[in-house]
Amino acid sequence: MTITVNGAAVSLPNDPRVSLLDLLREDLHLPGTKKGCNQGACGACTVLVDGERILSCLALAVQFEGRSVTTIEGLGMPGALHPLQAAFVEHDGFQCGYCTPGQICSAIGMAEEIRRGVPSHVTSDLSSETIALSRDELRERMSGNLCRCGAHNGIIDAIAETFAPKTALAEAAE
């Protein structure tokens, strides 16, 4: 029974109670994924599983056999940051930095959801095939990731800068 984490195959835990979050943090020593509530309310534990964002605290590790998990450590490291990580630094999209890995993983999953045309509560035209990457769309879709320091504006700025141009390009191509 293995799971792929940041490209490497690792064994699943023997104890079926171990959450994906605790597997990452305690067994695999990848503490970049954060525990803020352990009950699916804060979003700090968001990781990407086969490209989709999930709350790893609500996921039992054994359910993810054969799946591919990407954590913040898999996105980029100092010296070779992912463009969104760099944008967070530039726009001061954090203060304490604790919710940050979850915000970044969530934003990457969210951008993909928008690209696929998945509507949200604030999407005005549900029949449209493309969804504009407006600030309201970003704010609505990122509302599952809490930030207590109040870096919300910087987070949205960083996401908008990173993804908006690409989406605009994609729209232009269509």
């Binding site: 943090r25 020593h29 990848l30 503490p31 970049g32 994924t33 954060k34 525990k35 954590t71 913040i72 450590e73 996105l75 980029g76 490291m77 100092p78 010296g79 940051l81 990580q85 760099a86 967070f88 630094v89 530039e90 001061d92 954090f94 304490c96 930095g97 604790y98 940050t100 890995p101 970044i104």
Partner: peptide
């Protein structure tokens, strides 16, 4: 100036209290 510890924080490399093995 951007935060000097920014790259550590955005990459999950800044160690918090529960993360010292």
């Amino acid at each position: 100036h951007s935060r000097i510890d920014g790259p550590l924080k955005v990459s999950g490399s800044a160690p918090f209290a529960a993360e010292f093995p």
